[in-house]
Amino acid sequence: MVKSWTWGLLLAGVLLGGAWWWLGGDRDLRKIMRQSERLAAALHKTPDEGLLGLATRSREVAGFFASKVALTPGDPLPPIQSRDELVTVAATTLHAVSSLEVQILDRELSWIEPHQEAAMRVAVEVRVEAQGERQKMLHTYDLKWIREEERWVVASVQPGESIRRPGASGQ
């Protein structure tokens, strides 16, 4: 029989590890991580989603961004500079595709200014179906997160590709 002290030691180790992770880690960074997961989930669109649903979804997506934003997501999307503009672009884009799925593959997060501004590099897989054609694309983006009214929101997005076209400006 396994001795009781072995179980006790194992349990204590697990509890201490959990406590260290929860209390010792940075809660703000975990909040930003969760926000990025929610944003990716909000971009998910199924073929059966109606117009009303899309309108609501566009506002939900825009809610993840700061009131003044600088988004240059790259082709085919135009640069976006305000939340209102973002609602329009999100609605148009979601309407134009039959289905859309954004999956976060990996990300790295660091403080620009502790607990006020953070930089995130995120690798995503985008699966999109439009006009009967399915595509799967891999992209890397640099996001700046800022705290606005006690919420973490995205202030800027730009491509952060490690492979660049010849002649294009560097990263």
Binding site: L105, D106, R107, A123, T140, S162, I163
Partner: peptide
């Protein structure tokens, strides 16, 4: 393998 972000995602070229 070309780094994308973090430790799990790479381009393969």
């Amino acid at each position: 393998m070309i780094r994308m972000a973090g430790w799990h995602a790479y381009y393969l070229k």
